[in-house]
C-alpha cells in the first residue's frame, strides 16, 4: 500500500507540474484529493489493514496529502500571478496623455516677500505688530518728531481725511503705538508690515499705495554697530551670503544718526552696471538710531534706553530681487504676472 501511495504522489506531482491551466489544476486536485479521488480511495481501503500497519500507512498517507496540497497551492498561486500579469498587461494606458489639472492658487508676490521677511525677523527674536491704516496726525507725525509745519513733512505727501486724520504714510506709527503700550518698561523688538499711502501720481516708480516693513529695537545699550550687524544679517539672508552692505549717512526726523543701506549689486558684483547706475551699490532701506524725542514720546527714557529702527519697501525688494520693472504690476494683478512668481 505504501508503494501505491508513493505512486499516487509521484503521478499527482507530475500532473500538477505539467498543467498550465487553472481549471485543469482544479480538476487534478479533485482527482486526487476529492471525495472520489484516488488518494481518498486508498485511504478508504485502510480498514483492511492490521492494527499495527494502520498508523504507519496513515502517517504516510497524510504526508502524501500534504505534499500534494502544497504543490497544488504553489502551482495555483503561480498560475494566478501569471493570469493577473496578463490582465494588467492588457489594462495598459497611454501615460503620455495629459493628467487632469489640479488648480493651484498662490500668494501674491508681495505677500511672499513680506512673509519671508517676517519669518526672518521672527527668527531673530522680533514680534510682528500691526496697526491702523487710517492714523492720527499725532501717531503718524508728531510722535515721530515731525511736529506740524516741520519741513520734513514735505518728504511724505499725505492723504488727509480731516486735519487730524490721515492715511498713514509709513508704518512707523505702529512703532510709536507699541512703545506707548509697553510703557517704557520692557524692551521693544518688533517689525511692522503693512499698507501705506502717499499722495503720488501712479507711474512706473510711484504708487499711491504700497507696502512697508519697519523694524524697531529698543533696549538698554543698543549700539549703532548692532544696527549694522542686524542689517548685514538681514541682507545676507534675503539677498545671498555673498552680498555686502554699506551704510551711508542720511536724514530722517525719527532717527539720529540716520543711515541709508546699500547692498552690493548682484548683477555686476560691485563693478558697476545699468541696474546699479554704475555705482556698484543698490539702495535698499533707511534706518538709524531712534531719535531721543521719539523715545521720550514713546515713554522711554533716552538716558537709559537707546534703540535702532529701519524701514524698507517690499515692492522695491521685489523689483530688485525679481527684476519687476513697474510698480503698478503689483496692483493690476495680471494673472500671468502673479503666476510667474508663484513657485514652491
Amino acid at each position: 500500500m505504501k508503494e501505491q501511495l508513493e505512486a499516487i504522489q509521484a503521478e499527482a506531482l507530475e500532473r500538477i507540474s505539467q498543467t498550465e491551466d487553472m481549471k485543469e489544476l482544479q480538476d487534478i486536485k479533485v482527482a486526487y484529493l476529492g471525495k472520489k479521488g484516488s488518494l481518498t480511495g486508498v485511504l478508504r481501503g485502510m480498514g483492511k489493514l492490521s492494527k499495527e500497519e494502520r498508523p504507519v500507512v496513515g502517517e504516510i498517507a497524510n504526508k502524501v496529502r500534504e505534499v500534494i496540497t502544497t504543490a497544488f497551492d504553489g502551482k495555483s498561486e503561480k498560475l494566478e500571478m501569471a493570469r493577473l500579469e496578463q490582465q494588467l498587461e492588457a489594462e495598459a494606458i497611454d501615460v503620455t496623455l495629459p493628467g487632469r489639472p489640479v488648480k493651484v492658487g498662490g500668494p501674491h508676490l508681495l505677500t511672499s516677500i513680506v512673509e519671508e521677511l517676517e519669518d526672518l525677523f521672527i527668527g531673530m527674536g522680533y514680534e510682528v505688530r500691526e496697526g491702523p491704516e487710517v492714523e492720527t496726525d499725532f501717531f503718524n507725525f508728531e510722535a515721530l518728531n515731525l511736529p506740524k509745519d516741520h519741513p520734513a513733512r514735505d518728504m511724505q505727501d499725505t492723504f488727509y481725511i480731516t486735519n487730524e486724520l490721515l492715511l498713514r504714510t509709513h508704518t512707523s506709527p505702529v512703532q510709536a503705538r507699541t512703545m506707548r503700550e509697553y510703557k517704557g518698561e520692557k524692551p521693544v523688538k518688533m517689525i511692522c508690515p503693512g499698507k501705506v499711502y502717499r499722495r503720488d501720481t501712479d507711474d512706473a516708480t510711484h504708487s499711491h499705495q504700497f507696502t512697508q516693513i519697519e523694524g524697531l529695537y529698543v533696549d538698554k545699550n543698543v549700539r549703532m554697530s548692532d544696527l549694522k550687524g542686524t542689517l548685514d544679517t538681514f541682507a545676507k539672508k534675503m539677498f545671498g551670503e555673498e552680498r555686502e552692505i554699506r551704510l551711508r549717512p542720511s536724514f530722517f526726523p525719527f532717527t539720529e544718526p540716520s543711515v541709508e543701506m546699500d547692498i552690493s549689486c548682484k548683477v555686476c558684483n560691485g563693478a558697476g552696471c545699468n541696474v546699479c547706475k554704475g555705482t556698484g551699490w543698490i539702495e535698499i532701506l533707511g534706518g538709524g538710531m531712534v531719535h531721543p524725542k521719539v523715545l521720550e514720546m514713546g515713554g522711554y527714557d533716552p538716558e537709559v534706553y537707546s534703540g535702532f529702527a529701519f524701514g524698507m519697501g517690499p515692492e522695491r525688494i521685489a523689483m530688485l530681487k525679481y527684476g519687476v520693472n513697474d510698480i503698478r504690476q503689483f496692483y493690476t494683478n495680471d494673472i500671468r504676472f502673479l503666476k510667474q512668481y508663484h513657485k514652491a
Binding site: 489640479v102 492658487g105 501674491h108 505677500t111 499698507k195 496692483y331 502673479l338
Partner: peptide
C-alpha cells in the same frame, strides 16, 4: 485654487 490679489484701498 485661488490666486491672491492685492488691490487698492
Amino acid at each position: 485654487g485661488l490666486m491672491e490679489a492685492m488691490t487698492y484701498s
